[in-house]
Design a protein around this nucleic acid. Structure first.
Lengths: 215, 215
DNA sequence: GAATACTTGTTACCTTTTTCACAAAACCGA
DNA sequence: TCGGTTTTGTGAAAAAGGTAACAAGTATTC
């Protein structure tokens, strides 16, 4: 096991491995080699081994990995062995769509609060989740033990929301607003930029000789 | 100008440059140097020059880049000088949220059709956009000149939708379902995987000594 | 018109990431 | 127990990506 800094590319792949391993578990598979895993899910076996080796020696030579054990390790590494409480800021279509996204409420991420500035929305509920005034952000974050914030507001308000989150002690933020945000060094900001993805598709369509491939 | 294959990292940055350049245009800026652009938007000037140089010599030594001209070049390169017609498959919350996303209808991407299997939804309209039966997919794609498909259905149906799209001649697909899809070599598939992003945040929270930083 | 200041395009260098290859380890069948 | 097979973990090589440095242009000043 190497003690070095883990790249985000690696942790992203761990998420994928976890998903694959869960699928194997559903099939009733007990053990799996990196080679079999790679073949089935179109991955690279050396990379799987190397990624996993960053966190310990989970495999058994000659056998492979015990699927259930591997799942437990991956969940632990990714911090999915405990619940995360999510606040979504912006109760527009995107925010409300995210609030009952398959990912949430089916995993250890629980949407605990929505926020908006629209008085017509404040106080309403979306399923079990109440829509609060953004003014009460810090208070609710504390009361509801929120540790992850999703920014789903128009671009011009995103920076402000990020700063509110930072002030409230939030360390993990996912941003859907298509604008570059400045962030404190101790806050992890993950940008999800649909325009970039769309324009990447557009580039591909405009450039016939480019090899396609996933991403 | 180098003639080599362009990486997706490069084209993604072109999207960002375009966004920055548009902001400069709003400010009335006429010319900009790679250095000024880099300073203002927290980029690297050498990388900007290198990325741009892949596509031609757009700059003037001693001056920099003419902002308007640069915008036109970037739009052309990214294929944004012509309209793209988008179909969204899955008229659930996510699909409908995407249908009136800021990105669409404010740019050259026009949502031309929604698709669903739910008889209660088929025939309804969301703004100007009609919801069609997935059965009519190929027909509508042709009639509406659709060239980009967005998959916003539950994971278990995603592969099927992708294959329908491929059969209908679609070459650019954006997938929101959290599952790995197999795709023809000539189809560009762009995955937007919110679970991976969330789990990346979770990893960060679970690993206190990790430096944060954007992504 | 020459000297100075500025900025690009590009090469060379450095860092990160991926892939390859194999010794070491564990299992299996006889 | 032993020889053969499988498969991991890892160091070394290769590929990809990012940064720095600078020669070659262009504009501006005096």
């Amino acid at each position: 096991m190497k003690v070095e800094k883990i790249s985000e590319l690696t942790t992203n792949r761990l998420s994928i491995y976890l998903r694959c391993v869960n699928e194997l578990l559903c099939d009733g598979t007990k053990t799996v080699s990196s080679e079999k895993l790679a073949k089935r899910f179109h991955l690279n076996s050396a990379q799987i081994r190397k990624d996993l080796a960053c966190f310990g020696e989970f495999g058994v030579r000659g056998v492979g990995y015990y699927v259930e054990e591997l799942r437990d390790h991956l969940q632990k590494i990714l911090g999915l062995d405990r619940e995360h409480r999510v606040a979504i800021v912006g109760a527009g279509r995107l925010g409300t769509a995210l609030a009952d996204y398959y990912g949430f409420n089916q995993t250890n991420f629980e949407v605990a609060a929505l926020f908006d500035t629209d008085k017509g929305k404040i106080g309403n509920r979306l399923g079990n989740v109440e829509i609060f005034a953004i003014r009460d952000f810090a208070k609710i974050v504390k009361r509801e033990n929120i540790d992850v914030v999703v920014i789903a507001v128009p671009a011009q308000y995103a920076q402000e929301v990020l700063e509110d989150a930072s002030k409230a002690g939030i360390k993990a933020v996912m941003n859907f607003a298509p604008t570059p945000l400045k962030v404190e060094d101790d806050v992890k900001l993950k940008n999800v930029d649909l325009m970039i993805s769309l324009e990447s598709l557009s580039y591909f369509l405009a450039t016939p000789d480019t090899p396609a491939g996933k991403s």
